[in-house]
């Protein structure tokens, strides 16, 4: 299953059993992409929220 990276446009090969919410790293630009899966529609969205544990 081929999907385009929303940041650099590179084509990303996704395994059939990819899970909703899984984090995929784009090979070419290193962007962290969260899998949004509803039904058979799959979309990749840039993972945004910062983990609080690192901040003060």
């Amino acid at each position: 299953m081929k999907v385009k990276c929303p940041v650099c446009g590179a084509e990303i090969e996704l395994p059939e059993d990819v899970m909703d919410g899984e984090i995929i790293e784009c090979e070419s630009c290193g962007a962290q992409l969260e899998v949004k899966k509803s039904g058979d529609k799959i979309e990749l969205k840039v993972a945004e929220e910062a983990a609080e544990d690192w901040g003060e």
Partner: peptide, 25 residues
């Protein structure tokens, strides 16, 4: 934010030593 990330991704495409950081962890 996405436009800024794209600007970095485009400029550093294919450069082996640059890691573009955004979001967790």
């Amino acid at each position: 934010d996405l436009d800024v990330q794209r600007a970095y991704a485009k400029f550093y495409a294919g450069k082996p030593f640059i890691k573009i950081i955004r979001g967790p962890p």
